[in-house]
C-alpha cells in the first residue's frame, strides 16, 4: 500500500465532482485528498487526487476515471519527479508569553502568521504533507483551535507535460493513438 498521486483534467461542468466522487464510492476506492481548480486551458479543471492503495488498485482507479465522459485525461504521476504542495491554515492559541516562541517556530518552517488576535494567531504554511504534519505536531502543545488543509496539488518538474490534451500524449502507451471509425455493431 502506498500513496499515489493522480492528476485528472476534467470538463468544467456541473456535476463533474459528483461523478468522480460517486465512482470512488461505488468501486470502494479510498480518497486521501482531492483538490480542484481551473486548468491552463479554458473550460477544463484540474484535479489532484491522492489515493491510498496497491499499484493494481490505483491502476483500476485510473482506468475507471478515464471512462467518465467528462474526464479528459488522467495520469498517475507518483513515480515522476514532481513538485507537490499543500496549504494549511492553523489557528493556534497564543498568549503574550507564548507568542514569541510561536513566531520562532513559524519562522523555522518558513510559514507566515496571517492573522493575530488577542488570544490566537493564524499560521499559513505551504509544503508537503510531512512538513505540515511536523509543524502541526509542534503547534499542538500550544492548543490548536482550527485547522484547514487544501490537500495535495502536484505538477511534474521540467518540460514534461503529462496532461497535454491536443496532439500526441507524451507518456502513455499507444492505447490512445489508434484512429478509426467508431465501433458500431454490424449484426
Amino acid at each position: 500500500m502506498a500513496k499515489h498521486t493522480l492528476i485528472a483534467l476534467v470538463e468544467d461542468k456541473p456535476g463533474v465532482l459528483n461523478r468522480v466522487a460517486s465512482l470512488f464510492r461505488r468501486r470502494g476506492f479510498n480518497i486521501e485528498s482531492i483538490a480542484v481548480g481551473h486548468a491552463e486551458l479554458p473550460g477544463l479543471s484540474r484535479m489532484t487526487i491522492v489515493v491510498d492503495g496497491t499499484a493494481a488498485l490505483v491502476e483500476q482507479v485510473r482506468k475507471h476515471l478515464d471512462k467518465l465522459i467528462d474526464v479528459v485525461k488522467v495520469t498517475d504521476i507518483t513515480d515522476d519527479n514532481t513538485v507537490a504542495r499543500e496549504l494549511a491554515l492553523i489557528k493556534v492559541k497564543a498568549t503574550p508569553s507564548t507568542r514569541s516562541e510561536l513566531i520562532q517556530i513559524v519562522d523555522i518552517f518558513r510559514a507566515n502568521i496571517v492573522d493575530v488576535a488577542s488570544d490566537s494567531v493564524t499560521v499559513e504554511v505551504t509544503g508537503d504533507e510531512d512538513k505540515i504534519d511536523s509543524l502541526f505536531r509542534l503547534l499542538k502543545g500550544f492548543g490548536i483551535r482550527e485547522i484547514a488543509r487544501t490537500g495535495r496539488i502536484a505538477m511534474t518538474r521540467g518540460a514534461a507535460r503529462p496532461l497535454v490534451v491536443e496532439g500526441k500524449p507524451q507518456r502513455e502507451a499507444p492505447r490512445r493513438r489508434a484512429k478509426g471509425p467508431d465501433v458500431i455493431s454490424n449484426l
Binding site: E11, L44, V71, V72, V165, R176, K179, G180, V183
Partner: peptide, 8 residues
C-alpha cells in the same frame, strides 16, 4: 475531448 476508443 480525450475520447477515442482504441480499436487496434
Amino acid at each position: 475531448r480525450g475520447r477515442r476508443p482504441t480499436l487496434n
